[in-house]
């Protein structure tokens, strides 16, 4: 299972901050993960593809083309707002 984290407004949209998602043998990238999410939640999946949403895999900046597996932690980050 891949651990998928949603921060900020994405957590509200996903109905939770974390989800464990089982990737099939053919699901090798972040983009494929988003397609898996789309099967259950197309609105969330479309939002994850927005240009303002950043992706982090195992605490490293990543993108839709980044390779992933079931051992990875994938986080989706909306625009930040500290201070």
């Amino acid at each position: 299972m891949a651990r998928v984290l949603f921060f900020g407004k994405l957590g509200d949209l996903a109905g939770g901050r974390a989800r464990d998602i089982s990737l099939g043998a053919q699901d090798k990238t972040v983009s494929a993960l988003v397609d898996v999410i789309a099967e259950e939640d197309s609105v969330l999946a479309e939002t994850l593809k927005e240009i303002s949403i950043r992706c982090v895999v195992n605490e490293e900046m990543a993108g839709l083309a980044t390779a992933i597996s079931n051992d990875d932690e994938i986080a989706f980050l909306p625009p930040v707002s500290g201070g």
Binding site: F7, G8, K9, L77, P78, V80, S81, G82, G83
Partner: peptide
């Protein structure tokens, strides 16, 4: 402060 506002990983509701 400018960078904490726009670059640091926080989300505020």
């Amino acid at each position: 402060m400018d960078y904490l506002k726009t670059e640091a990983m926080f989300w505020k509701k």
